[in-house]
Design a protein around this nucleic acid. Structure first.
Lengths: 158, 158
DNA sequence: TTCTTAAATAGTAATTATTCTCTTTATAGA
DNA sequence: TCTATAAAGAGAATAATTACTATTTAAGAA
């Protein structure tokens, strides 16, 4: 499930270009951390990235991995699954519903749609597993955040 | 955004019935914790539930709230947003893709579908915010988990 | 109702992912 | 090369969640 070498080289180049454009330093550590994430098709956690990179840079620290991953996210070069460092939230709404999440302030609201309740899933899913429930997650800006900056909203961290 | 009183009473009754059916004790604490989650339309975290219930049961402990919430989840009476106690995972796949998540072992796989990339969202969303990106999350059983019990898989916790 | 027993609770300590602070090192431009 | 400054490293700190243990309570039997 590894990405091809060409594609990785391509992404490494665009990463370097992005760094140059934004005045972000291209350090050995950053390059290797980015490479580690870019060359795997699964969704590693920080610990796994750390283990992988440590084989090449033994003095690597976990903190640097975290810092770099968040940086990469800010640069738009990677995304995250799940909300980092956020408390688990409990949902008593058992009706089939979907979620809107504000990428800025984290506001989460349910919404409903009969169309979205009965989506046609691709056949390729069959090779992965058996679907039980599908839910649509819409990311965007809530009206308040879209209207203007609210002081005290934490950046990065959805 | 509170649910109506009738509906809550209805849910309290089905909760009690469910407990009786499964031989789970109906304690004062459990009833109040369930009521707290059922009567709010937002998605409270454990701390918020704790604060709410504490007004009625001052000796309530946070641990009980956590244990009860996971119990409610196991009973299928509530669901969670985000994966509890799971590390943040990083995703280097920037192509528009969707996720299949095994509810049993947590396996997460990307899949693709042009249809799902361009979903028609309901107008009701406009009152909440401005959509930037939509992603479909399919929950189900991966082939391995569907095939049989794997020893050492942690239950509860997706 | 009272008794019995397994299950649940409260309180506190322990875990663990993530972040902060401070010092050292490496990068990019002059 | 030299210098200003960003980034890395190390270890301690933080905070959400879980584990442990003594005590209490619900549910069914007598």
């Amino acid at each position: 499930m590894k990405s091809g070498r060409n594609e990785i080289d391509q992404r490494m180049r665009s990463f370097e270009e992005m760094c140059r454009k934004l005045g972000v330093k291209r350090t050995h550590q950053r390059m290797e951390i980015f490479r580690e994430v870019a060359q795997t098709a699964d969704h590693p956690d920080a610990e796994k990235v750390y283990r992988g990179v440590s084989e090449r840079i033994p003095t690597m620290s976990l903190d640097t991995v975290y810092r770099t991953l968040w940086l990469l996210k800010d640069l738009g070069l990677i995304t995250t699954l799940g909300s980092p460092r956020e408390r688990t939230r409990f949902d008593a709404n058992l009706d089939h519903h979907h979620h809107f999440v504000c990428v800025k302030c984290g506001l989460t609201r349910d919404f409903y749609s009969d169309d979205l309740d009965s989506l046609k899933l691709p056949d390729s899913l069959l090779s992965i597993g058996h679907a039980v429930k599908t839910q649509v997650e819409v990311k965007g800006l809530c009206r308040e955040c879209a209207a203007g900056e609210k002081p005290g909203d934490k950046k990065r961290r959805q």
